[in-house]
């Protein structure tokens, strides 16, 4: 069959497909979208024929564009909406965390070891803390958590308001994403990012233990501690998963290992982001509120217990997605 004859006999359904695709692209209600699969298969056949019979690049590219367009409309991942959301938190996220248990524990240690060391330093060698915290920061901490300050200062600085909530979202989620991106660079970035958080938070807590009023600090921090700290630890683990794929791809090529690691890290990363966003809500509205200290401690401890149960139990009976 000559090219011109081929073009003439098939032109009607090509035009048909092109106009259907244009309608779908511009979100017009396409009445005849149900015919798309049939048209798609037909044009797939046309493209294969045109390539085989060497009908020239212009025709092949036109058909190629059509096939890609229809393919992108037909081969879409199902958007599961609300049920997908529930399924993610009921199964995919905790399953993903359990699959990365080793890395999660490593990040846990990377965070809590320096934290514990600096807390201990408050009692044995306070000069370590003074070496780390700049004087301006110590002054700020004195004002917030100093031995003699009352509740009023805390409420002024961290008034339970929308502004602080915005700040916590911006700041903390950004830290998490950067810890993750750092992990991509051979895992070193995540180890550094997580370790740095541990050192710094440890030093700040140690400083308050040394020369402040620890109770004020703990009443502020306890309720959102589990959400935020575990969120950072999981973000670091997700980043390390990808960094490790480059260093130790196992039996895969490095490219394949990277893709695989991306798939494994994604649920952990998304879940950790959700946790840190929740932490920002608690930190913005509940932590600085005038709720009694006992309630805040209870909320804090319940948070840690809840996450321990969640990550060890949730989604055990559901298939991995």
């Amino acid at each position: 069959m000559k090219r011109t004859a081929f073009e003439e006999s098939n032109e009607p359904h090509w035009v048909d497909l092109e106009s259907t695709l244009a309608a779908l692209d511009s979100k017009q209600p396409a009445m005849d979208a149900r015919r798309l699969p049939r048209l798609f298969r037909q044009v797939c056949g046309d493209l294969a024929l045109a390539q085989q019979r060497m009908y020239g690049r212009k025709l092949c590219e036109r058909l190629n564009t059509m096939v890609i367009g229809a393919y992108q409309h037909l081969h879409l991942a199902l958007n599961r909406g609300a049920s997908g959301f529930v399924r993610f938190f009921a199964a995919t996220f905790p399953q993903g965390v359990r699959r990365e248990a080793a890395l999660v524990w490593l990040n846990f240690a990377l965070f809590f070891a320096p934290l514990a060391a600096f807390l201990a330093a408050a009692y044995f060698e306070p000069k370590w803390i003074f070496a780390l915290l700049p004087p301006e920061l110590r002054q700020m901490m004195d004002a917030q958590y100093g031995a003699g300050t009352g509740d009023e200062y805390v409420r002024e600085q961290f008034g339970s308001n929308f502004g602080m909530f915005g700040f916590y979202i911006m700041n903390n989620v950004s830290i998490n994403f950067r810890i993750f991106a750092g992990g991509v660079i051979l895992g070193v970035g995540a180890a550094y990012g997580i370790g740095y958080q541990g050192v710094f938070i440890g030093a700040m807590f140690g400083y308050v233990h040394h020369s402040g009023n620890p109770e004020r600090l703990y009443t502020f921090c306890s309720s959102h501690s589990s959400w935020e700290l575990l969120g950072f630890i999981l973000g670091g683990a997700a980043g390390m998963r990808i960094g490790l794929a480059l260093v130790n791809p196992g039996r895969l090529t490095r490219m394949a290992a990277l893709r695989d690691a991306g798939r494994r890290a994604l649920p952990v990363l998304l879940g950790s982001t959700a946790m840190i966003s929740c932490a920002a809500v608690i930190e913005g509205f509940f932590s600085p509120s005038s709720a009694p200290a006992g309630l805040k401690y209870t909320v804090g401890i319940l948070g840690w217990v809840m996450f321990a149960a969640y990550f060890s139990l949730a989604g055990r009976r559901m298939d991995a997605t």
């Binding site: 008034g159 308001n161 929308f162 502004g163 602080m164 909530f165 915005g166 700040f167 979202i169 911006m170």
Partner: peptide, 10 residues
């Protein structure tokens, strides 16, 4: 102003 800052940051 505080609500404004919150909205801006978000």
């Amino acid at each position: 102003i505080e609500a404004g800052v919150g909205v801006l940051l978000l």
